[in-house]
């Protein structure tokens, strides 16, 4: 069953501090994180936030470093809004939405130094490339938070392949990829004057502005404001506080999922 609401109904609900799915404004839907769902990949995790369903897969290959960082490995993040995930998604080169999605997730992970990129150095002009692919399998809003959760959980459980001569050994007893930080993003949608955490697809269809904030215990690591609407300074400062609080909960979900792996 799909539900659609009229603008009038939604406005009336929000003015009573209610949401269509009866959540509080700053509540997440139920979240599930499963790691190592694709054992062929070096790392993987599937995440549900409500009906939003994403999968992150990690592969490592030998490559060359970026010229400005000759002794560090390279993270390459891509996102696919698969046509199987929504009627709105079409086959073809990545849409601007998919590119923004991948870049926002990538930025949080880089800034929080989730991967210890120096540990990926092999020898001069030879480093490990980390390919992080985010697959959207069912769209129901808030891809950024689901994508970040899946990516971080996948990276934290990634097996580090080793080299035997030119051959990459990907199976057997392997250590984990060296990681440092853990980050989680929190996404807010603004509809009229109401601000909601973890918007559903239905809510996103009515939102006029979106704000994503990625944090750990101490720092804000990435932010992205989207769409034509606006936030005031007061709103943003308040949402940063909320983000720190919710990020703690999200990161503990990641830790739980990762420790079971």
């Amino acid at each position: 069953m799909q539900i659609k609401v009229s603008k009038e109904y939604l406005t009336e609900l929000l003015s009573r501090q209610e949401r269509v799915d009866q959540r509080g404004f700053f509540d997440y839907r139920s979240i599930s994180i499963k790691t190592n769902t694709i054992p062929n990949a070096e790392g993987s995790a599937s995440v549900y936030i409500g009906n939003t369903y994403v999968l992150a897969g990690v592969k490592l290959d030998v490559g060359t470093p970026m010229p400005d960082k000759p002794d560090e490995g390279v993270l390459v993040t891509s996102a696919e809004l698969l046509p199987l995930a929504s009627v709105e998604y079409e086959e073809g080169p990545p849409s601007p939405e998919a590119v923004e999605f991948a870049r926002v997730v990538d930025r949080g992970i880089r800034a929080a130094e989730v991967i210890d990129t120096e540990s990926l150095f092999i020898e001069e002009n030879k480093v490990w490339n980390v390919y992080l692919d985010i697959y959207v399998l069912n769209y129901d809003g808030n891809l950024f938070d689901a994508g970040t959760l899946a990516s971080v959980a996948a990276l934290l459980t990634t097996r580090m392949p080793r080299l035997e001569g030119e051959q990459v050994i990907r199976t057997g007893d392997l250590p984990r990829l060296k990681t440092k930080g853990i980050v989680a993003s929190t996404t807010f949608a603004k509809i009229g004057n109401a601000i909601l955490l973890d918007p559903t697809g239905l809510e996103e269809s009515f939102m006029n502005a979106r704000l994503t904030i990625a944090t750990d215990d101490e720092y804000i690591h990435a932010m992205q404001k989207g769409l034509a609407g606006y936030f005031t300074r007061q709103e943003i400062e308040k949402l940063i506080d909320t983000s720190f609080e919710k990020s703690k909960m999200l990161r503990s979900l990641i830790s739980k999922a990762v420790s079971g792996d």
Binding site: I38, N40, G57, V58, S78, D133, Y135, T171
Partner: peptide
């Protein structure tokens, strides 16, 4: 019909998208 393989689907190197 679209049949496609995820770039992380095989035990070998990262697949081209």
């Amino acid at each position: 019909c679209r049949y496609a393989m995820a770039p992380f689907s095989s035990l070998e190197e990262h697949g081209r998208a």
